[in-house]
Design a protein around this nucleic acid. Structure first.
Lengths: 208, 208
DNA sequence: CAAGTGACTAAGCGCTTGCTTAGTGTGTGA
DNA sequence: TCACACACTAAGCAAGCGCTTAGTCACTTG
């Protein structure tokens, strides 16, 4: 390497750091590394080096490697819940709610497949306490999705033999995007989302 | 612990070991550990101890921890391919082929969710050479599933706007079972498989 | 300008990791 | 009967791990 250190990013008036500051660079490096090699396959040196810092810098901003994972997991789950609620608020009709929900859930998981991989496949690396909190959020997600399906059945818009299983399948399709979706795979997030919204309505038996 | 060592299992006439021999115990312990904590979260001591042996015993039967993972991955992928081919051989009709395929794919992934977790979520821990071979098998799986969907469209039995995406969704549903299915979750593998076979036919637009 | 604050690094500690080495006991074939 | 092959263990090595310590430097505050 040529230089020794990068310039310190300017602190903002309220004492927080700039959006591309060290914290953000560490988080971005951690997401990328956890997604690619998993929590246990990633070293704290990997993360710090990718963020352009020394290994000890990670501990200036995070108590432990696990706490960093938890921060990423929490933010990811919250974003997913917000997105689902937004879709539910977009209409009164279960059919349109489901279409919007599956569409933006798919876009979210395809566009953010790196983060989504960490959110959905690294739960086992959380501490028992942190895991419990995250599982509560996941239960909320399940409940929201099942709610739309049941509302559609109640409204006579859907025809589903097993609403609970149908809701699980709908969630499953979106989550699994984190596993298989590739940026260079020939489909844009919107392409997949359009197709999946159509598939979702077929699954719940909306007449076409 | 009471005793020091277990009795040596009798070798069979052809030189192979008994079915519950050391090799099998190591494999079973490895599957359980890799599924629960991931490849990098599992130590060779974990595996050997769970198999009731000393750490070095693993290296009597396997060149490395990675080679053990590859062996499990290879066997799992081969079993999946066999299962798919069996479903395709069970009928001439794409509708019945797809029903059989999705049903047994789902049963396989639900009943064998522990092994399926290793097969589907530990690919990144394989060596580049081993990964290449496994990806070839996964490509074969994709091709077989897409083939049924396309055959159904060609025969006029299916109505699908995007056969490739539909095939991906069908595979996705089955694979994701490895992530969420629990033995104590209230659904038997057959329950899920019945529901998923129904959902599969809806996805490909078979009139009900 | 002195004292204080916070972000960062160099060095390294104690432990765990994958894997090896040297050796032991047991069953087998000549 | 005796040499050999084989499955296995006790002990341990070099490397890598998460995390800590002690200190440096730039900047802010009075």
């Amino acid at each position: 390497m040529s230089g020794s250190r990068q310039a310190r990013p300017p602190a903002t008036a309220d004492g927080s750091v700039a959006p591309d500051g060290s914290r953000a660079r560490l988080r971005a490096a951690a997401v990328a590394a956890f997604a690619e090699r998993g929590f246990h396959g990633t070293t704290t040196r990997d993360i710090a080096t990718a963020a352009g810092m020394s290994p000890a810098a990670l501990y200036v901003h995070h108590r432990s490697k696990e706490e960093l994972l938890h921060e990423l997991s929490l933010a990811g789950h919250q974003a997913t819940i917000d997105l689902i609620k937004e879709a539910l608020d977009s209409s009164e009709s279960p059919t349109e709610q489901l279409r919007a929900l599956v569409h933006s859930f798919a876009v979210h998981h395809a566009r953010g497949h790196t983060s989504a991989r960490v959110v959905n496949y690294e739960l086992a690396s959380l501490s028992p306490e942190h895991l419990a909190g995250i599982l509560a959020l996941r239960h909320e997600i399940d409940t929201l999705v099942r709610g739309v399906v049941e509302a559609g059945v109640a409204a006579g818009e859907f025809d589903v033999p097993n609403p609970r299983l149908a809701a699980t399948a709908l969630l499953s399709l979106g989550i699994d995007l984190a596993r298989w979706y590739r940026d260079d795979g020939g489909w844009s997030p919107e392409d997949v989302a359009d197709g999946y919204a159509e598939i979702a309505l077929r699954i719940v038996g909306v007449p076409r």
